Structure formats: structure tokens, C-alpha cells
Computed example of a mutant assay.
Amino acid sequence: MLGAVLSEAQQYRAARAQKYWQLMRNGVSNAEACRLLGMHRRTGTQLRQASNFQIPPITAPAVTAGRYLDARERLRIADLLRLGHSMRRIAVELGRHASTIKRELDRHRDAQGVYLPRTADHDARLQRARPKVHKLAANTRLRTLVQRKLNRFWSPDEICGWMKKTYPDDQTMRLCPETIYRALLLREDHGLHQRYATKLRTGRRIRKTRWRTRIGQGSRIRNMTMIGQRPAEAETRLEAGHWEGDLIVGVGSVSAMMTLRERKTQYGIIVNLPLDHTAASVTAAAISAFAKLPTHLKRTLTWDQGVEMASHEELTKKTGVPVYFAERSSPWQRGANENFNGLARQYFPKGTNLAVHSVEHVSHVMRELNERPRKTLDYDTPAARFKAEHTGQAPALR
């Protein structure tokens, strides 16, 4: 609708009302204003009642109709185009930015380059209509691929980054991680069944704020070297061989697994500890893991202040790897390892017995995790990056 057309009587009454209020602004009484305009006093009283006996302020007409172009502005654009005006001059006439006019013409010109204002207004209203069909609901191929990757415990960010790298020229195979999260965690039908929410790292069907932090004092470890004394190269991730470690514990704190993660390549190692996680067991597992690595991949190890690392001096003596300790209740100082623990928990959930997993199964999970693309690696895999570092053929930094 391009706007209501007033009848002659309506136009006359509107013009008379404007003159009436102008006389009132000049200090003329209601009776005198009605006499000068040739109307009954009751008509003037009705006008005053309609405005709550307040003289309406003088308002300048709006230059534009708001955020979006309206039908009247589109008609003016068409008229000015026929007069040969440039887009910048049209923008000045309408009080709009020149880029607004350019986008309007780019979107709504037909194949012959003709701009039709009524068609443009109709199409614009349809384009602004909400809600739109969700991308995962409309694209069966895309939805199937996302579901397959979710079944392999890939995160939404890994899925989106992998698709961008695998289908660089296919825009229909692009989406952002938030699209997947909203499809999984909102009740509306966005194309993914909520059962796939259990494939996320948290396993939750709702979002939960991260407000909890670890507390407690615990036992002290002797002769600790704190993280502040760790070489700067470990922080920059420009040099391979700097590791972070921790334990994930099973039900009843009986069984456990030791996890190690290299900071530069994001490569992770998991060692099952089915019987106990004493300092002796953890130290022996770490020595065994580091024994398979070349010297240039054994530079530092960062751990929290858990008592399982009480024999850190023996570990350093046997492997040559100095151990540095993070501050208490500061898991972000070992962010790479905390992230890896979260990935591992998808396969080894909390509250379960970790002793039931065989060595072969743990090795399979470790291989699965190291063959998943990582955003921090430009969606390369940790396994590929670690292999390149192991052979001394690391790719150049981009």
C-alpha cells in the first residue's frame, strides 16, 4: 500500500485544523479563531479535546520514513533515475546515504537493468519477513553432513571450519557454529534433532554459564617451580615440545587417566591408570610417554598442584623435562590441557569407571582426537602438525 489518499473534505478539514492551531499559537481565543475560520465553536472545542487541551507543537516533517526505504521513497528514486540523476544526488534528495541507494538498485533492478519501484517495495517486504526457513532445515545435504560429524563428536566450530576448507567454492555448504548450537539447544525446529545435543562436549541440552571455579587448598608439593619462571617460548607457541598435563578421574576417584597435550601442535596423549593415580603411577606413566619422543619435543611440562606430581623431581631426572606448576585455582594457565580434557570426557564421561577401557580403545580415542581439525591450527589436524614437528619438517607459520 503506497499510502491512503484523502478525500477533498478530509483535506479541507486538515488544512482548517492547521490554521486553527496557528491562530491559537498567536494568542487568539477559541471563539475568535472559530469565527475567523467560519466554523462552529463546538468544532474548535472538539479539536482541543482531541489534543487534551494542549496546543500541538510544530514538528518538521521527517526526512525519511525510518530505517528502511518506504514505497514513497522508492517512487522518488524511480522518478529521479528517469530524470538522469546520479545515485549520490538521489541520496541527497532523499536524505539517505549513497550506499543505501546503490544497494537498493543492485538488489531490485531486473535483468534489463530497469528499476520498478512497486515491485521493489513488494520484494523488500517479503525479504524482511520473519521467521525465515532455517538453513539446516532447508538444505538436506548440509544437514546430513553436520549430523555425521556430530556423531563423531566434532564440535560445531570444527565442523564449520572443516566445511569451509573442504568446500571453498560452495556457498551452500557454509554456516557458522552458532547456527548449529541454536539448532541443538533451542526448542524450535531448526533442522537438527535434540538427540544430537548429547554429542556436544558438555552433553547438555541447554546452555550453562561458566561461573564455577575450583576451590580448596590441598597438600603442598615440595620444591615447586612456578609457571612464572617458565620460558617465554612456551607461552608464544612458536616452539614445539612444551606440554601441559593433568588427570581425569573416574567414579569414586579410584581409576584415572593421565592426559598430556603439546601447546604448539595441540597433539594429545592419553594414558590409562586403571588401578590408582598415585605419584609413583603418574610419574611412571609420564616417563613412559616421554621416552618415545625426540629431545626437541621434550622441553617443558606444566601441571596443576595436584599431589600426583609430588615426584616431579624424579620425572625431570629420568626424562630431562622440567616441570612447572600453575597457580592454584587457575585452570586457564593450562588452557590447552583443560580443552583436551573436555574432548576426552566425550568418550570417558564423568562418573564412570575408567578402568574398564582397554589399551586399544584408549589408543583409538587418542587417534580420533588427534585427527580432528582445530581452529587454532587453521583447521589442520594435530596429528599432521605433530608428525611434521617430529620429522623436523614443520610448516612455516602463516
Rank of each mutant, 00 (worst) to 15 (best):
L175N: 02
P177L: 06
P177A: 03
E178I: 00
Y181V: 03
R182A: 05
A183E: 04
L185E: 04
L186I: 00
D189N: 14
H190E: 01
G191L: 04
L192K: 05
Q194G: 05
Q194M: 06
R195T: 08
R195C: 12
Y196P: 04
Y196L: 10
T198K: 13
T198P: 00
T202R: 08
R204F: 13
R204H: 12
R205A: 08
K208Q: 11
K208E: 02
T209H: 12
R210W: 02
R210P: 00
R210A: 05
W211P: 02
W211V: 15
W211I: 15
W211N: 08
R212F: 04
T213N: 09
T213A: 11
R214P: 02
I215Q: 14
G218Y: 11
S219D: 02
R220W: 01
I221P: 09
I221D: 06
R222Q: 13
N223G: 03
N223A: 14
M224E: 13
M226G: 12
I227Q: 10
G228L: 08
G228R: 12
G228M: 07
Q229M: 10
R230D: 09
R230P: 09
A232G: 06
A232K: 12
A232L: 11
A232Q: 15
E233K: 14
A234P: 02
A234T: 06
E235C: 03
L238G: 15
A240G: 14
A240R: 07
H242K: 14
H242T: 08
W243H: 11
W243R: 10
E244H: 10
E244A: 09
D246I: 04
L247T: 12
V249P: 05
V249M: 09
V251Y: 08
V251E: 15
G252I: 06
S253R: 15
S253L: 02
S253K: 15
A256V: 10
A256I: 06
M258D: 01
T259Q: 03
R261E: 10
R261S: 14
T265I: 03
Q266H: 11
Y267R: 08
G268L: 13
I270S: 07
I270P: 02
